[in-house]
Design a protein around this nucleic acid. Structure first.
Lengths: 140, 140
DNA sequence: CCTATCTATAATATTTATTATTACAGTATA
DNA sequence: TATACTGTAATAATAAATATTATAGATAGG
């Protein structure tokens, strides 16, 4: 699974915990232990999909604009990782009936798999994740 | 998605089409356009799980021993790629409540996602894939 | 019993994908 | 106008996937 997806969940969870102030990419990056530029790239996708707003300049950063209870993991998946389930099969041998057709067959199957996965991911919202994090035994 | 999974499907589909004779790793590799050693490594997993038998020496190779109508894509997934859905999240910052707990939370969610995916993959058998391949428009 | 053809598997090399880093332009604030 | 941010492209470094090489062992046929 694409790690943009989990980074997006991580970031939105942090933002949901600080709904009243901007969080910088540096602060989020320190929580997730990745480079701030990577956070900005992922959050740029989320901004383009309207989940968050960003502000440049001093005191700027990112802030959650939607209700975390309304944002499902499927919404996030679609924004950051759509198609990630598809296997990148190498070009097979067109001279063979299996090689020639396997790609299309697998493509159809994995399209269905992604839709099916969607039904599962729709059950979880960022609010749920925030609650899970708060209720974990080894909490902060 | 792990390509061992799709290579296994590809290989078993070929074997299902030749139920009466051994197929060599070289022949399968040529259909899938990968290296024969890779085919042997994947098929070694399938053999250990009892899907196929192999025979060394001249005229040896691999042969399907089960009924293709009884082997689902979920069976194959479990044999070749279990856990592949789990994201490899980097170690996050233990000093942060989100960083400290995100890994466990995501792990639980993805365990559930894999189980859910299983329900979908159980619907497809190798026999189905063989039929799809035979019915594709741009067939051999 | 020798040779050719195959699997099994480990070790290494190569390629590709992911991630980090650097760089720089732009924006807002004080 | 100095400082602290985002946005994004370009490049470098690292990690993962895949191919290749190597070697041992099995089997069939001459």
């Amino acid at each position: 699974m694409n790690s943009n997806f989990t980074l997006a969940i991580h970031s939105l969870t942090l933002l949901a915990l600080k709904p009243d102030s901007m969080s910088s990419s540096k602060a989020i990056a320190e929580s997730a232990c990745v480079h701030p530029v990577r956070i900005r790239n992922v959050l740029s996708l989320l901004r383009k999909h309207g989940f968050i707003e960003s502000k440049e300049g001093t005191g700027g950063g990112f802030i959650f604009t939607l209700n975390p209870a309304k944002v499902t993991l499927w919404d996030i998946y679609k924004a950051t990782s759509e198609g990630a389930l598809q296997p990148k099969c190498p070009e097979a041998n067109e001279e063979c009936i299996v090689g020639a057709n396997m790609k299309n067959v697998l493509f159809s199957i994995f399209i269905g798999a992604e839709e099916h996965l969607g039904e599962y991911l729709k059950k979880y919202t960022i609010k749920d994740v925030v609650e899970f994090v708060n209720n974990e035994p080894e909490k902060y």
